[in-house]
Write a protein that binds this DNA or RNA. Structure first.
Lengths: 343, 343
DNA sequence: CTGAAAGCGCTAACAC
DNA sequence: GTGTTAGCGCTTTCAG
């Protein structure tokens, strides 16, 4: 056959193998009309014989679309974000696209680095869970026409773009009100670092729920900061050592809930000391298997990814209009820990 | 300035804006030597002014490398795989590469689809956790020079490629021996579907541990199949209803462990019926917070991703030699459930 | 229905 | 030091 080609076969190779012009191969590969079934069959045979595969880079160079979207999250290994990731992937798949994913590790520099690397590869669109608050670096990309959707957290000041958020304020309210209804008055809040949007929103929901119930806010019962177990442990121990310790606890995200559970398990061994009631923001697997079951405010992380991706692909399909802001509802799942009565 | 360019600015635009030749811009952008600091500064100014960003697709077309690797796993949302994913991402980052990730959903067709889509985008290399056993479709890609590493499961027959596995047989042995040492003789094994490599290996480890201890294998105590909770539940209930029910249980992966825990929690409410001892293959978050703590055989999912990625980048850097097969050790973490004595 | 030619944005190989 | 030229593999345009 004498068709030994070095490296990958190209359309040109297929064309000469099939005895047709390059453009005919292109037509067959792309399913364009205007090719006799017989010629098409010859071309397809040559494709199979040579193991030809279209070079997407060359195609992109010509057409401008990569059928790839970029996703920046905090950590692909975190259950909250990996669920979001999966949902984005499913929507992308339905639209014939792949997903480039990167972890920002809550570092604005890495977020920027990832976004620019994605843009350099000319992704069609981006879904960003921002780590930073300054997104000026996005402007040239936006001008160039890239579609961007923010998820879980809004873009920094000066940018108004499609955004999908959870109802953080409402969720935190829900949890706090639930504890108040249970008779608690000393409710602590352990949150993520206040530089994080969702942390601030949840703190706000907590504060307003207390205020609305006429319960004074005790600043000593509010601890926001890093997710280091040591930090959380120290804050919790400090609170529990107060003359009037909290009888209930609201934790600001899934990781904090788990850390708090560990601290409480270590500090209040089963029956001796009274365990504070606990409501955690964000559901997690096995919350039902711990005793007592962990009451949570569930956010729809898959919904976050799905809605953001749908919004993105709608924009990519040419839908214009003002940027949308969508809030996804949260719901309270009582499992026991949030129903513990005050002592 | 009259530099209004439609769409994204190109090197040509930058060149004319800076009053230099295209190649000079290329030199500056790529940090090549042979440019006066003054000219370089002029070019950089033009780049900033126009918001120029190198088109990676065009670069790829010329150079042949995308600085992108593909990762096919079963599910990006599964903690085992998302941890692996993160480890791959970190290694890729150190090598200046991005990661295209896709979920095969344990479907060989989807695995193939993803791999080919990645190849069409000319990823430099692939890390595959295979869903199928037939990888003939990979041959043209391998011939074209793509680097491939298999992780967690080996390639199908006929292919010998770099592979990183966990010591599944040894791990299952470890768990079974632990239960035997605890005095158990009726040990059940609930595994994943036997079409899955790791499931077969773990079953093998379980069987040989029993055989080595002179304990006869009772086929009624072995249940392998889907990960549907209903299937697992039915199998467990059947075993527990035997005249001589198992006093201990070895579960074949993290998801099965969780399902089994739920079934046992529902069926043996706290103090009434005696709980079988439990050892689970694969560690999971919160295993320590459940009462009793869940004894597991921990596999190093991050190590799997890290070692696979390091192997891949070593190949990409030009290291040749016969394909490597690496086995990562497992270790037993006793937490209570595996130390429950037989009744 | 099929084909020839131009060019997407960049880099490699040479000029100068 | 800097510029010119060719061409990566494909799609687009326009001729046959």
């Amino acid at each position: 056959m004498g068709e030994t080609v070095r490296g990958r076969p190209t359309m040109k190779d297929v064309a000469s193998a099939a005895g047709v012009a390059l453009k005919t191969v292109s037509r067959v590969v792309n399913g364009e009309p205007g090719v006799t079934p017989a010629t098409a069959a010859r071309v397809r045979a040559a494709i199979a014989r040579l193991g030809y595969r279209r070079n997407e880079s060359a195609r992109v160079l010509r057409r401008g679309r990569t059928a790839t979207v970029g996703l920046v999250i905090e950590d692909v290994a975190d259950p909250f974000y990996s669920t979001l990731n999966r949902a984005v992937e499913e929507v992308a798949r339905r639209h014939g696209s792949l997903v480039l994913t990167g972890s920002s590790a809550e570092d604005p520099g890495r977020e920027r680095e990832l976004v620019l690397a994605f843009c350099a590869r000319r992704v069609d669109g981006l879904i960003i869970v921002p780590a930073g608050e300054d997104h000026a670096y996005l402007q040239p990309e936006l001008d160039a026409g890239i579609a961007v959707v923010f998820a879980d957290r809004p873009p920094g000041p000066g940018l108004v773009l499609d955004t999908v958020l959870c109802d953080n304020v409402g969720g935190a309210r829900l949890g706090t009100e639930h504890l108040l209804r249970g008779g608690h008055r000393r409710i602590a809040f352990v949150g993520d670092h206040p530089s994080i949007f969702t942390a601030r929103e949840r703190e706000h929901g907590y504060r307003t729920a207390l205020a609305d119930a006429g319960v004074p806010v005790d600043e000593r019962l509010i601890a926001m900061g890093s997710l280091h177990p040591a930090r959380v442990r120290a804050d919790l121990l400090r609170m529990l050592a107060l003359p009037d310790p909290p009888t209930a606890l609201l934790t600001g995200n899934g990781r904090l809930t788990v850390i708090a559970l560990r601290v409480l398990a270590a500090e209040t061994p089963s029956t001796t000391a009274p365990r504070p009631a606990l409501v955690g923001f964000d559901d997690f697997e096995l919350a039902d298997l711990i005793r007592p079951g962990v009451t949570v405010i569930a956010q729809d992380s898959a919904g976050l990814g799905r809605v953001a991706a749908e919004l993105l692909f709608r924009r990519l399909s040419g839908v214009t209009g003002p940027p949308e802001l969508i809030r996804l509802p949260t719901r309270l799942i009582p499992r026991g820990s949030g129903e513990l009565p005050p002592p």
